[in-house]
């Protein structure tokens, strides 16, 4: 990690632009222009969505382009009526609680269980490791959506359809993340562990007090992505929770509102407010943990 950041900065210094070359200045201007327009295309829909969600329903359905929420005489007018309506039709209190339970439980279990399995594959020489691992690799090849119907069949057999267990049990681990954790542990130097074993520490203690802290950057990235995935997961909730809206998640509940809004524009005001409510938590998490998320990509390359 350290060596790379050094080479990055030296790379940047070398590449400082020669400001006098008009061709290069023009290229620079064009670059900023293109990126600026693109950035606008990415941010504008969100600005528009948020502003629209504070419009009165009457203003939402007024023809013509109006960015800001204004009343008929053109004065700014922010209202919260769409939000109060959305709270009710989303059943927000309940579904938010469900979403948090599912996300927190799945993230916590994923981190610990994936790490344990990954550690065993990387470090513990137990009987059966050699023939067990190919199964993990094979399972990794199967795309997620393909497992939807098979997993529904199992959940039916277990009787978990329409219960919150259907959102938890199939997602307490991720074979793919087991593989990533194994890669992480294989990249650690063995010396620390060996020293601890010499001191008489057992596998469990070595794992929890020495190895797990060493891979914590990876745990942060996988934790964030697991949380976000469970938060946004829609297709599975649609099929596994067909009728019992007491266990719906935020995404599932908003999905119901969106399906209704698609054919009935009268639902737009609520739908817009509901989208803002649903998007907000992840966007806040993103801005708070931005550093980790944007750096997450290079993490797998730490060991070299």
């Amino acid at each position: 990690m350290a060596t790379r950041s050094v080479s990055w900065s030296s790379f940047r210094r070398k590449g400082t632009v020669d400001r006098k070359d008009p061709k290069k200045v023009a290229a620079k201007v064009a670059t900023y222009l293109i990126l600026g327009i693109l950035a606008f295309l990415f941010v504008f829909p969100y600005i528009w969505l948020v502003l629209a969600s504070f419009k009165t329903p009457e203003a939402i359905f007024r023809p013509g382009f109006q960015l800001f929420p204004v009343d008929e005489s053109g004065n700014l007018q922010f209202v919260f009526v769409n939000y109060t309506n959305a709270l009710e039709s989303l059943n927000l209190g309940r579904v938010f609680l469900n979403t948090m339970v599912v996300c927190v439980v799945n993230t916590a279990l994923n981190l610990i269980l994936n790490a344990m399995a990954g550690y065993a594959f990387a470090r513990i020489d137990f009987a059966g490791r050699k023939w067990l691992f190919p199964f993990v690799l094979a399972a990794m090849m199967i795309p997620g959506a393909i497992m939807t119907i098979p997993n529904l069949v199992i959940c039916q057999a277990l009787g978990t359809i329409d219960t919150i267990w259907a959102l938890i049990l199939p997602f307490v681990m991720s074979i793919y993340n087991v593989f990533l954790m194994r890669q992480q542990f294989m990249g650690l130097s063995k010396e620390l562990e060996e020293a601890a074993v010499m001191d008489g520490a057992g596998s469990l203690r070595v794992f929890f007090t020495i190895c797990l802290p060493l891979v914590s950057p990876m745990l942060v990235v996988l934790g964030i992505t697991t949380f976000m995935w469970n938060y946004s997961n829609f297709m599975w909730t649609l099929l596994a929770l067909p009728t019992n809206n007491d266990v719906w998640t935020l995404a599932r509940s908003l999905g119901e509102l969106v399906s209704a809004g698609r054919s009935d524009p009268n639902r737009y005001p609520q739908m817009l407010a509901g989208s803002v409510i649903t998007s907000l938590p992840l966007i806040v998490i993103f801005f708070v943990l931005q550093k980790y998320i944007l750096q997450g990509i290079s993490l797998g390359g730490v060991k070299e």
Binding site: P45, Y46, W48, L49, A52, M228, Y231, S232, F234, L250, A251, L254, G255, L257, V258, G261, R262, Y268, M271, L272, G274, S275, V276, T278, S279, L282, I283, I285, F286, I293
Partner: peptide, 14 residues
């Protein structure tokens, strides 16, 4: 980082 459902809602309106 926006839930797909919310993105869909946004675009339906746009």
């Amino acid at each position: 980082v926006t839930a797909g459902v919310a993105v869909s809602a946004m675009w339906i309106y746009m």
